[in-house]
Design a protein around this nucleic acid. Structure first.
Lengths: 348, 348
DNA sequence: GATTGTTGTGCAAACGTTTGTGTAAATTTA
DNA sequence: TAAATTTACACAAACGTTTGCACAACAATC
């Protein structure tokens, strides 16, 4: 009975239990899994011994045997952005609920690193991949290549311009429509927009929403009021300068995200412009802390990142656990749109 | 030559290569690993075929065979807190550099969830665990139990009061000392401190730093000027009320972190108190965005979370790859202190 | 009392890879 | 030219678990 002191040794295996009880490993395995063909007495004996030895099944062995890792890879640009830290929480919650683990990696908005990470995820044999592509990603062969590996992949938020993919994104067009509409109803007629880089789908959607709102009010779209910006502080300031020297100086500005809004507002204040008086600002919600600031956009488009993460993870796990009949998984793609919502800030 | 079209099938194995070349699997394995006992011609043939079939070694199989997962588990309270999102970047960078992957999970400051996650990490057979315990964790048996599993564990930032553990933390005592010293030099004599819950080591360290600074200026420590707070907004307001009605009303306040500082400053402003005029604020750096605010602490203690994450991961990987001779690993524990630094904000 | 059915268990293969050992053939040495 | 050495490969075991199949023992049926 010296089997009790091997605690701090290697983890107990099914074999040891078998040897100690003088039965076969298959019996032990079946007993632990409550297989119907094992006698009650044997089951009890096995379970008691398993508990005594602190037996825990070696998941790595099981994963290997079954050819499933029960792990999903998640690649996202930057956890420091609260959109993504909220999204990862949604992903994680779904993953753990459905008994999957999460292998995390950040691209830090570096396309090369992203490529490496994707390769690594494939080598790690993740069961599926969730990815929000980096800002700098502009070639897509590696994504196409990954698709060939038969590992399901779901894109979220930052969707690359590639055909036949599954993705989850927020409806930026309708969100922007609402935002611009809100400004129009407030009486604004000259509305500027600091948009993102043209290679992002998100920029196009915002643009479309903007145009739609304008035309629905029978206003003509003035392209000079929509500026593309690299989302840096310098780029934002440049855009602001353009607007402030514009022959049609905007009375309201919609910014691509809260960071841009912050830069723009800070710069405007330095020029003694009265925020939300001389110029109204509307943005897209990214930063929870913006609520604590003294001068914040009067409204913002909430994109529900947590919900988006949940949804994306759910879809991925559905794809992973889809029965073999691939007939429709080859033709049907999840294109899920999470509605965004215009949140109007409390007046100060 | 019909082996070229099995691309979208199951991943290629070493066996298939062996069969196609009519050699043994061991030869293929050794050829791919450039083993000395394999002829040059064979190596070339194998490598060529491997490339042709897009062979990638099955890491899961290797991990299983070697009994190593090459994965570290990371459990932290909340990625939305920028301290942790910075820390995870450091962890990730080291892990990937040293060829490990990161299994991530958030406790969301829930002790029960944390317990479950630890259990799960053990079942997943991670090679090591990195953890920053949740605020609500107040029993430590599960941590002690985990140590018995022989999986190295390194704590960082939020260290539980448990003996004989490896940890990385910032030197809050010296940071606080510097902060209080800075205020004393500015002429303040009545300095309040909104500290954290007493069960956190971090609170004790701040307290010690505070006391040290005071005594070094030959000032007596007034315990009524150090309040313990649950770090919520309500708790902060309560603490502020206590201070404002104190017979020795502080002319400067040190807060546990930026969130508390925000709550305190907002509340003070609502009472028409002039920030950094009537009362000077000093805090600990958590939020990058605090720089964008109009009223921010005049100084803050930077804790270098990225560096801390890197250091913690490095230590963990060293422990994992430590040679078998356990003689000193049983007696010696890494207690690494990352120096913090007082950052004095630009005057506005 | 032979046949079928049920219950409980063991054997062995399989997953993909690495690695220790065995062994031909080719080369060098005496 | 036989013996010793080297070279180049194959065989098989191992990692921990699941699972199809075989098979014994026993009970129930005709």
């Amino acid at each position: 009975m010296q089997h009790l002191e091997q605690m701090s040794d290697k983890p107990t295996t099914i074999k040891e239990i078998a040897k100690l009880l003088d039965i076969s490993v298959s019996t032990v395995s079946r007993a632990l899994n409550d297989h119907s063909s094992i006698g009650l007495i044997t089951k009890m004996r096995v379970k008691k011994m398993a508990k005594e030895l602190n037996y825990e099944p070696n998941q790595r062995a099981i994963q290997f045997l079954q050819g499933k890792s029960h792990t999903i890879g998640v690649i996202l640009p930057e956890l420091a952005e609260s959109f993504f830290s909220a999204a990862i929480s949604g992903i994680e919650d779904i993953a753990y609920k459905r008994n999957y683990t999460v292998l995390l990696a950040q691209s830090h908005d570096d396309a090369d690193r992203e490529k490496l990470l994707i390769e690594k995820m494939k080598m790690q044999r993740v069961d599926g991949l969730l990815i929000s592509v980096s800002k700098t990603t502009n070639t897509y062969e590696h994504l196409e290549a990954f698709k060939k590996s038969n590992i399901p992949i779901v894109f979220f938020d930052r969707i690359p311009p590639v055909k036949n993919i599954h993705f989850v994104a927020s409806n930026l067009e309708s969100g922007t429509y609402e935002a611009v509409n809100f400004l129009l109803k407030k009486g604004h007629r000259t509305i500027g927009m600091i948009n993102g880089p043209t290679n992002l789908v998100a920029s196009t959607e915002r643009k479309n929403g903007y145009i739609k709102a304008m035309t629905s009010h029978r206003l003509k779209f003035d392209p000079s009021l929509m500026l593309n910006c690299d989302l840096t502080e310098a780029g934002t300031i440049e855009a602001m300068d353009t607007f402030l020297n514009h022959k049609r100086k905007p009375t309201a500005i919609v910014t691509f995200n809260d960071y841009v809004a912050l830069f723009a507002i800070r710069y405007a204040r330095s020029l003694n412009i009265q925020i939300n008086k001389d110029i109204d600002f509307v943005s897209y919600a990214n930063l929870p802390l913006i609520n604590y600031m003294d001068f914040t956009p009067i409204a913002s488009v909430e994109q529900f990142p947590y919900k988006q993460g949940k949804k994306a993870a759910d879809i991925l796990l559905d794809l992973i656990n889809k029965p073999k009949g691939d007939t429709d998984s080859e033709t049907a793609y999840y294109n899920v749109v999470v509605e965004s919502e215009l949140i109007i800030g409390k007046e100060k």
